[in-house]
């Protein structure tokens, strides 16, 4: 009996996962969270990650290039956990379905879902030195490193809670 109940709970928690899957790869933490917050793979579809990883020499104005082996390991990790393969997570599903099939954004912040969710922010909230860029998720989403972006956990520096 115990086993059956446990099985049921497990399934339920997986199919209703609310955020995105937290980063669970040491190499990713080391290489992709050194310059900025470590964006979860579940925030972009596989084709976006592949495109981004194929141009690390010119990565948003920076050189983020890696040796061949590390690059391959990271592409594998990103693709395996990409938003279109993590559709049981609510945010991953919403991001995936908001992107037009013929487009391949390499910025999370350029996906339609993201833009819609952030259209109430005022310029001063983003441009202030404590945040600097809309890509700096962790500056406002206090639990971003757990993959949780819910309204309850938003605290914008010098403006306070969002609710």
């Amino acid at each position: 009996m115990k086993n059956i109940v446990l099985g049921a709970i497990l399934t339920v928690s997986v199919s209703f996962a609310s955020g995105v899957k937290p980063v669970d790869n040491q190499l990713y933490k080391k290489e992709c969270a050194s310059c900025h917050f470590g964006f979860q793979p579940g925030l972009l579809p596989a084709r976006s990650w592949v495109k981004l990883m194929n141009n690390l020499e010119n990565h948003f104005g920076d050189d983020a290039s890696l040796d061949k082996n590390d690059k391959k390991l990271l592409v594998d990790y990103l693709v395996k956990n990409s938003s279109d393969r993590a559709m049981n997570y609510k945010r991953s599903r919403k991001i995936t379905s908001s992107i037009f099939g013929n487009s391949t954004p390499i910025r999370i912040t350029k996906t339609p879902y993201f833009i819609r969710k952030h259209d109430e922010l005022r310029v001063g909230m983003v441009k202030q030195k404590e945040v600097g860029s809309i890509s700096n998720c962790i500056a406002c989403h206090t639990t971003a490193n757990k993959g949780i972006y819910s309204e309850r956990a938003i605290n914008i520096p010098n403006y306070g809670r969002w609710e």
Binding site: C35, H36, E130, G132, N136, A139
Partner: peptide, 14 residues
């Protein structure tokens, strides 16, 4: 300039 202190990535604020 003080290498014993924290720095800040001017491109990303980290």
């Amino acid at each position: 300039l003080n290498l014993k202190a924290n720095g800040k990535n001017i491109h990303t604020n980290k």
